[in-house]
């Protein structure tokens, strides 16, 4: 984490503020996805376990719709070569990762607020547990989708492959996060959820390490 990756992040942040492409697309996607769910639910009362699952369905597909921009935009503008000249691969990955982490946190906070307003069953009993799993889940989501985005940007098939490649990689994280969200609904203590928390934390650490090690190969291709 050095000043170069910070300035790369600032560059992405400023260009995002100028065009507001990702923010607008993500916000509209969240609204569309949640309204589809609300239409199909209708007047029925849905259970807590279904609400927890649907919460992560929306998070997954929202991430898949917006997070690939980080690297695809560089390839589209033809600025990837310039970036290769001015910075080391790990620096570039850090910059893109910070940007995606902030994007994921922003979008998931919005989704969580919307869910707690719109769904009756979305009642969190153990808020501390929810927050912890939310933070670690978001970091894992951001790391995995950033490294897959780098592969996708090089592969040329931009849109359709992204969810296909990401889903199996994210599956352990999503399965445990759904479990943790349900624990938070039921008000289960940290002591009983520590195994699931450990899985999420180790997933984050493993993916982060592997991503930094493998990004060199993708970036130099």
């Amino acid at each position: 984490m050095n000043s170069k990756s910070y300035s790369l992040f600032l560059k992405d942040f400023k260009s995002e503020l100028r065009t507001r492409y990702a923010i607008n697309a993500l916000a509209m996607f969240i609204i569309v996805a949640i309204s589809v769910i609300l239409f199909s639910v209708g007047n029925e009362k849905i259970s807590q376990s279904l609400t927890g699952g649907l919460f992560w369905v929306v998070i997954f597909f929202t991430a898949m719709s917006g997070l690939s921009r980080a690297f695809v935009s560089e390839e589209e503008r033809g600025t990837a070569l310039t970036l290769q000249l001015i910075a080391a691969p790990s620096t570039i990955f850090s910059g893109k990762l910070i940007f995606n982490i902030i994007l994921v946190f922003a979008m998931n906070t919005v989704i969580a607020i919307l869910y707690s307003v719109l769904f009756e069953a979305f009642v969190i009993q153990n808020f501390a547990l929810f927050l912890t799993s939310f933070v670690f889940g978001n970091i894992g989501l951001a790391v995995s989708s950033t490294i897959i985005a780098a592969i996708i940007a090089k592969a040329g098939a931009k849109g359709t492959l992204y969810p296909v490649l990401s889903f199996p990689i994210l599956l352990p994280l999503i399965l445990t996060s759904v479990q943790l969200t349900l624990f938070a609904f039921d008000g289960i203590s940290f002591e009983r959820a520590k195994f699931e928390l450990a899985i999420v934390v180790s997933y984050d650490v493993i993916m982060l390490t592997a991503s930094y090690m493998l990004f060199d190969f993708i970036w130099k291709e």
Partner: peptide, 11 residues
Amino acid sequence: ATLSAVYSMIA
């Protein structure tokens, strides 16, 4: 070869 090798390592 490179990209699929990287993906198979991540998987």
